[in-house]
Simulated assay, not measured.
Amino acid sequence: MPYTVLVTAPTLAPAGRELLEAGGHRVLYIPQGQGSAAIEQLLAAEPVDAIISRTLELTPNAIAAARQLKVISKHGVGVSNIAVEAASARGIPVYVTPGANAQSVAEMALGLLLAASRRIAWMDAELRQGRWSRAQDGLELSGRSLGLVGFGQVARKLWRACQALGMHAWVYDPFLPEGADLDGAQRAPSLAALLARSQVLSLHIPLTAHTRGLIGAAELAALPEGAVLINTARGEVIDEPALVAALRSGALYAAGLDTTAEEPLVAGNPLLALGNVVLTPHVGGSTPAALAAMAQGAVHNVLGFLGGQPPAASACVNPAVLS
């Protein structure tokens, strides 16, 4: 039976698109430059059975407008742009594609760590502007302590890479079962205990009411002097004015950010004026390989559910609706 599937983006990687086309399903897209209002209008006008959610916000109003909607799948794992409570109220499951972009994000985190620690982006910019600025104050990572907030697949992959550099690691993840394999890392009993040991702090947590602003002025001050902060999670988990202040003062040596509280960044954002920040536009999970895996996983999620073969409950962020 063919279904109508909405992708909340202008396109979907061929690996996912071809699966939909092979089944004869009708696929709708949101044109470039349009936003949440366009999603709501389309859902009110079209008999959409499933949504593959990318970066645009899927609001409560949009979900209410989708009278035929049966299932949502995130193209990735972060569901902060989906009104999950509104979906749950209607008994609509919201699935994710865990692990599909983990390798890509972990490699971005490592790249940001190396670039921030050795001031690579700053020196590149200096050379391009005709200045032979040989910064010789970069941080050597061997022997340094890596603090991981969250220990899912991305954090584990980053830690394995950092082991090869000669680092050691501490992990803080209250949802990690006791006795879980930490791949040679040590478990910190609290966030405060982790921060005190983290010469490099890397964030791998979803955005929730609890994690919003989790890393603020007090937490940044608790880091060792000259620490490096890496964020490939969500920008809102950091109090950005406090981060700017710590970078300006030198309390933090550097930061590498793939995600910020404001996206896209606008002219005048203070992060853009700091030479000790490496910035990328939220593309950690956007390599062709990762996009293909996420597209394929999201399509399998919605078609499996609609076809009576739902994905594992562990991939559902609101499993109560499945019972």
Score class of each variant (00 low, 15 high):
211 T>W: 01
160 R>S: 15
16 G>H: 07
188 A>D: 06
37 A>F: 03
232 T>E: 10
231 N>I: 00
104 S>P: 06
228 V>T: 05
209 A>H: 12
69 L>R: 07
60 P>V: 00
280 T>V: 03
56 L>G: 04
103 Q>T: 15
287 T>K: 10
9 A>V: 01
140 E>T: 14
233 A>T: 01
189 P>Q: 10
63 I>Q: 10
36 S>D: 11
294 M>V: 09
72 I>K: 00
24 G>V: 06
68 Q>E: 15
13 A>W: 03
109 A>R: 07
82 I>D: 02
292 A>D: 11
291 L>P: 01
39 I>N: 09
125 A>K: 15
275 G>P: 11
43 L>A: 07
158 L>T: 14
43 L>T: 05
238 I>R: 04
282 H>E: 11
149 V>P: 08
155 A>Q: 06
106 A>G: 02
251 A>R: 15
309 Q>M: 11
159 W>E: 14
102 A>Y: 01
98 P>W: 09
246 A>P: 04
33 G>W: 02
215 I>Q: 00
262 E>G: 06
113 L>M: 14
29 Y>Q: 08
167 M>N: 07
65 A>R: 13
197 R>T: 10
133 S>A: 15
52 I>W: 04
146 L>R: 01
278 V>G: 08
66 A>H: 08
209 A>D: 15
170 W>Y: 13
222 A>Q: 14
285 G>F: 00
267 A>S: 15
32 Q>M: 12
209 A>M: 04
174 P>Y: 07
42 L>K: 14
277 V>P: 03
266 V>H: 13
166 G>N: 08
304 G>F: 05
209 A>G: 02
235 G>Y: 00
142 S>N: 15
273 A>M: 08
303 L>D: 07
252 L>S: 03
255 A>E: 03
227 A>R: 04
288 P>T: 09
114 L>H: 01
314 S>Q: 13
210 H>G: 15
60 P>M: 01
224 P>N: 00
192 A>D: 15
174 P>I: 12
144 R>L: 12
173 D>L: 10
16 G>F: 06
169 A>G: 13
131 R>C: 13
143 G>A: 05
213 G>F: 03
27 V>D: 00
33 G>Q: 04
237 V>E: 08
29 Y>F: 15
189 P>V: 10
242 A>V: 13
11 T>M: 11
22 A>Q: 14
285 G>C: 04
4 T>E: 12
101 N>C: 12
228 V>D: 00
